[in-house]
Computed example of a mutant assay.
Amino acid sequence: MNTNRKLLTALAVGAAIGGILGVLYAPDKGVETRKKISDRTKKITDAAKEKLEQLRHHGNGAKDRKSEFA
Rank of each mutant, 00 (worst) to 15 (best):
S67Q: 11
M1H: 13
H58T: 07
F69W: 07
K36Q: 15
R34S: 15
V23L: 13
T3M: 11
F69G: 05
M1W: 08
A48E: 02
R34K: 13
T3I: 08
K36I: 05
A16S: 07
A10E: 05
L52K: 15
I17E: 04
G22C: 07
R5V: 09
A12E: 05
A16R: 00
N4D: 12
G30N: 10
E53P: 00
K63I: 03
K36C: 00
V23R: 01
E68K: 14
I44Q: 01
E68C: 04
K35Q: 14
H58Y: 09
T41F: 04
R65Y: 04
T9D: 13
L55V: 05
E53I: 03
R65E: 10
R5E: 08
T3Y: 08
T41C: 05
R40L: 15
E53Q: 10
D46R: 02
R40F: 13
K66P: 02
R5H: 09
K29Y: 11
K63C: 01
A12R: 08
E53G: 01
K63E: 04
L11M: 12
K63V: 03
T3N: 11
G59N: 06
V31A: 15
P27I: 06
D39Y: 00
A62L: 10
A62V: 06
A62W: 00
H58P: 01
A10H: 07
T41L: 09
G61P: 00
A48W: 01
I37F: 01
L11F: 04
L8V: 02
E68R: 14
A70H: 13
I44K: 02
L55S: 02
K49S: 10
K35D: 11
L52H: 11
K6Y: 09
